[in-house]
Amino acid sequence: MGILEVKGVNKRFGGLQALSDVNLSVKENTVHAIIGPNGAGKSTLLNCLVGKLIPDTGSVMFDGQSVLGRKPYQINQMGISRVFQTPEIFGDLTVLENMMIPCFARRDGAFRLHAYESVAAEKELAEKAEQMLIDVNMIEKRHMHSASMSRGDKRRLETAMCLVQEPRLLLLDEPTAGMARADTNNTIDLLKEIKEKRDITMAIIEHDMHVVFSLADRITVLAQGTPLVEDAPENIKGNPKVREAYLGESA
C-alpha cells in the first residue's frame, strides 16, 4: 500500500476527457515520476491531488485519508507540499522571511493570531530556516529580496520552503520547465541530494527525460488521460508502447 493511492479517477472538462480511470500508487520513500506527452493529463492529475480540482469520480487517498473536498491549505497541513511549474515564492520578502513562513505554518497550523509576538524572538524557527538554507546552499543569499534572484535560485528556494515543512509527500510540477541548461542541472543536483540525504517521498511530473531518468525509482507513463504503463526506469526506455506514445520523438 502506497502513501498516496489514486483509484479510478476520472475528470472531464466539457467534451474533453482529461483523465480516464487513472490508478496510481506512490510508495513511501521513493521518487515516482509521471511522464507523458503534452495534454496527457499530468497537470490535471496533480491538481486533483492538491485540492485545486475535484475529480468527477474516483478516490485519492493520502495515508489512509481522502484528500477530496479539502482545500489546498488543509491538504498541505496533511503533509503534501507542492512545487509549482513557475516558482511560486513570496517575491516581496527576503529569502529568510520566505523560509520562516512555512516554519510558522508547520508549527502554528493554518491560522494563529500571533499579532503581538515578535518574529525576531523566534530563534528556534530562524535556526531551522537557516539550517535549511545551508542545506540548499543559499545561506549567503538570506537577506536578498527573493524576486531579484535567478529562476534556478527561485526554484531552489521554493523547494527548500517545501522541504522545511518536512512534508511526507513532495509534489513537483515540471521542476525544470523553461530553465536554462545550467539551472536544470542545478535543480537535478539539488533533487538528487535531497533524495540521498532525506527520507522523502516525491512525485515528479516532468517533460525532460534527462531529469526523469536521473531521479526516478518508478515511472508512470500517462497518455491521453490513461496510465499506459508503470515500471522501473530501465524497463521504460525499452518499452515499445512507451516509445510509440512518447519517446519516439525524443529518444
Binding site: Y73, Q74, F84, I101, A105, F111
Partner: peptide
C-alpha cells in the same frame, strides 16, 4: 503560495 504552504 500562502494556500499551498498550509495557511488559511
Amino acid at each position: 503560495r500562502v494556500n499551498y504552504t498550509g495557511l488559511n
